[in-house]
């Protein structure tokens, strides 16, 4: 097991290295110049050159990359080209908002998905099943940039229940969480349904039924509990994705999270900020992945041995 953990961590490190190299070259390959973005229309050539030197952008790419990794080993993420602030400070400022929204969205997703998925599984092939699944699909078929403004229109303007946008207390969390959560709920409820159906076909469920246990106890106690593992895995993976921020939702609701920071940095060609954001996003993703692998390996020894054969 320890060996397995070690190889997983090592490969995670390789993946992170690959990601960082890829983002570094990609962002430099895209046309557009951060100095232009910073200095605006009327800056003169001498300013640009001075700025380039001050920011170290005049160095060859490979030197810049090497320097970046050297700084990384000292946990130095650098400073933003635009605001000249330390990037670690910027990330720490945004992280709580992103975490908050991610967890709230997961709560919304779970709250919608479990009842829908269970109903659909128990009443398989009935109108209930179709209704629940269609409902979840509708949630997924609405793009966030459409749903966000519609929710604002209905719940903020007409009903006046929640603030329109911004991050100001629990009320302001509701609409973005619903916007993000519904799409997730669709995937999740289908997952709940299908795994539950699979589990309900297993022998031990039949045994439980044969023992004369009530149907609800069979489904909830034996069925759902055993169906949980893949569902939790999916939740974990989604959390990894959500931690990377939800660009469109954050933009619509003026939510000061990582996603918004990333997209703004890309558009401004703020290289070190883009790199730091991608580092954080992929770190979250890789971390969740390693955890998932570990859980699986722990549950199913075949993966541990079979995969490495």
């Amino acid at each position: 097991m320890l060996n397995f953990l070690f190889t997983r961590l090592l490969s995670a490190l390789i993946v992170m290295f690959g990601v960082m190299c890829m983002v570094f070259f990609l962002i430099h390959l895209v046309p557009g110049d951060p100095v232009d973005m910073m200095l605006g229309e009327s800056a003169r050539l001498a300013d640009r050159e001075a700025m380039r030197v001050a920011l170290g952008l005049d160095q060859p790419l490979l030197v810049q990359l090497q320097q970046y990794f050297v700084n990384l080993t000292q946990f130095d993420l650098g400073t933003s080209l635009h605001s000249r602030r330390p990037i670690s400070e910027m990330l720490l400022e945004r992280l709580p908002a992103t975490l908050e929204l991610a967890i709230a969205a997961l709560v919304v997703a779970v709250a919608i998905a479990f009842p829908l998925g269970v109903i659909a599984a128990i009443r398989k092939d009935t109108l209930w099943d179709r209704g629940a699944m269609s409902f979840s699909l509708i949630g997924m078929s609405i793009p966030n940039f459409w749903m966000g403004p519609v929710l604002i229109l209905v719940f903020s303007l007409w009903l006046g229940w929640f603030p329109v946008s911004g991050r100001d207390g629990i009320g302001s969390l509701v609409l973005p969480a619903i916007t993000l959560g519904t799409a997730l709920a669709a995937v999740l409820s289908r997952m709940v349904r299908s795994t539950l159906l699979e589990v309900l076909n297993e022998d031990y469920i039949r045994t439980a039924r044969a023992k004369g246990l009530s149907e609800s106890s069979v489904v909830l106690k034996h069925g759902l509990r055993n169906a949980l593992l893949p569902v939790i895995t999916l939740l974990g993976l989604q959390l990894g994705v959500l931690l990377g921020g939800a660009v469109i939702t954050e933009t619509v609701f003026s939510w000061p999270g990582i996603g918004k920071l990333t997209i703004e940095a890309i558009l401004k060609r703020d290289y070190p900020v883009v790199q730091a954001c991608v580092l954080l996003i992929s770190l979250a993703y890789v971390f969740v992945n390693v955890m998932t692998d570990l859980v699986y390996a722990w549950v199913d020894p075949r993966i541990r041995t079979g995969g490495k054969a």
Binding site: S11, V15, V23, L26, I27, I281
Partner: peptide, 19 residues
């Protein structure tokens, strides 16, 4: 292949598409 898949998955898709 797994490493390559992992790198792509860990990479924010929107950034890749924009780039």
């Amino acid at each position: 292949v797994v490493r390559i898949i992992d790198i792509f998955l860990a990479f924010p898709g929107i950034l890749l598409a924009i780039a």
